[in-house]
Write a protein that binds this DNA or RNA. Structure first.
Length: 424
RNA sequence: GGAGAGGUGGCCGAGCAGGUCGAAGGCGGCACCCUGCUAAGGUGUUGUCCGGGGAAACCUGGACCGGGAGUUCAAAUCUCCCCCUCUCCGCCA
């Protein structure tokens, strides 16, 4: 969430930001709740002050009739307070409900626009492979080589789940190990996080755990959700903590399974492994000083590039436009890799994403750091995909396919997969 | 699942026959000082959040001792409900 103090101070900026992000939110209503709330707080505090004064006087010995007057007045205050406090609670709740919906500010470089057409491509890397045969998509390849089984999974679990088999299993682990080792070398602390989190943490990280629009599974009879990304559990790891400036940045690399309901997401571009209910992911996460978050964010993007360069998968980098940003994100870069089986003639598909969420999450999760001169500030939090396994499998299978329908194993994964080519 | 213990400031930990408690003490942090005996010693300082005032240092009101409700003029302290943690037993990977 934002800093409530900025509500008035940066009214125009917030209003413009809402427009840029294509959101419809009644900012004036938020402010009027805010003011009403302050008014009530003031009145409540006056009464409490008087109550405390009376209690204070009664600590000492007082004459009997003065005592009676004071106690009487005390009782009246108690009644009055209970009424006003109830009113305050109501207003307070409504205020926060609305206020929390206000998205983060937006980095000035970000293209303004309402949908993906306004995203800005900022770089391409690698040559798009040219096949002298008609390339297959990963679904056909997976079927032919018996690497992926969607049908059984839909019977046992549900549509959009899948069984990985044979070398696909090794590819999953190889990708994980490859990413984990690389990040450890770069100073990240490796973590395997829980795959569930309390809904409070889920919300704190800026995800909506409930409601018809939610992308998050929750567990019946428990206040728990399946995590949609390790970002949630990594962010939650330090909730309510105060860090020291000199220990920042903290760099974590977390592995988790990711669960997403993907409500209403269908169509041509979500087929196969591209949009699934469960996948594994290695995620980068950083807690930084406020002034460092931009730099670390760019570093995350570089690491993502390095990973896909090592895998020799062609990609492009896209700076995501204002209208496509999630509420917590201040700035976001996606890497889209080339997927020969996507669409008619192949297309780019999102494969990683890195966001600088500045203090939007830390304010909610209450994660601060103490500066060298003793001030406390909210940390900035940055997340980025190292490897989203399922989508990376698409990229590998489709880019590395041969005319015979085999798949060449990327060099950096061969040790673990144990072969250079997947044939049957 | 059964039995018990406990949740207090950045951390540890007193207080819990109601008012003198925002809370002892220790550790840590910060500042200064001292010092060749093995990164030690000394002194001081140090909670968060929300209001009001001030350019600021700061002053001032309120809230906060897991969360919520209650009793009372007054609750960290009493009552009830909930959540969480730990220990033991059971069950199980």
């Amino acid at each position: 969430m934002l800093d409530p103090k900025l509500l008035k101070e940066k009214y125009n900026e917030i209003k413009q930001n809402l427009r840029n992000r294509n959101l419809n939110l009644d900012l004036d209503a938020v402010i009027s709740f805010y003011n009403k709330r302050l008014e009530l707080i003031k009145r409540i505090e006056e009464l409490r002050c008087e109550r405390n004064t009376i209690a204070d006087k009664l600590k000492q010995k007082v004459a009997i009739d003065e005592k009676n007057t004071l106690v009487e007045r005390g009782k009246n205050i108690k009644n009055e307070l209970s009424i006003i406090e109830k009113e305050y609670e109501d207003i307070d709740k409504k205020f926060w409900e609305l206020f929390k919906k206000i998205p983060n500010f937006t980095h000035p470089h970000i293209p303004v626009g309402k949908d993906e057409h306004s995203n800005r491509e900022i770089k391409r890397w690698g040559d798009i492979p040219v096949f002298n045969f008609k390339p297959l998509d990963h679904i056909s390849l997976g079927q032919k080589l018996d690497l992926i089984d969607f049908d059984t999974a839909s019977r046992v679990s549900q549509q959009k789940f899948y069984y990985l088999k044979k070398e696909a299993v090794l590819l999953e682990f190889a990708l994980c190990v490859f990413a984990l080792k690389k990040l450890q070398k770069k100073g990240f602390t490796l973590i395997i996080t829980p795959d569930v989190a309390r809904s409070e943490i889920v919300e704190g990280a800026g995800f909506n755990p409930r409601g018809p629009e939610t992308n998050i599974y929750s567990i019946a009879n428990f206040d728990l959700c399946l995590v949609g990304t390790a970002e949630i559990t990594l962010a939650g790891m330090l909730s309510d903590c105060i860090l020291y400036e000199k220990e920042l940045p903290l760099l974590y690399c977390g592995f988790s399974h990711c669960f997403r309901t993907e409500a209403g997401a269908y169509g041509q571009y979500s087929k196969g492994l591209f949009r699934v209910h469960q996948f594994s992911k290695v995620e980068m996460f950083a807690f930084t000083k406020q002034e460092d978050s931009d730099t670390i964010h760019e570093k995350f993007l570089q690491i993502e590039e390095e990973i896909y360069q090592d895998l020799k998968i062609p990609y492009r980098i896209v700076e995501v436009c204002s209208g496509e940003l999630g509420a917590p994100a201040y700035r976001k870069f996606d890497i889209e890799s080339w997927m020969p089986g996507r669409g008619e003639k192949g297309d780019f598909g999102e494969i990683t994403s890195t966001s600088n969420c500045t203090d939007y999450q830390s304010r909610r999760l209450n994660i601060k750091y103490k500066t060298l001169n003793g001030d406390k500030k909210f940390v900035h939090m940055i997340n980025g995909t190292a490897v989203a396994i399922s989508r990376t499998l698409i990229a590998i299978m489709e880019n590395y396919q041969t005319e015979e329908g085999f798949i060449i194993v990327p060099e950096v994964l061969r040790d673990i997969v144990g072969k250079n080519i997947i044939k049957s």
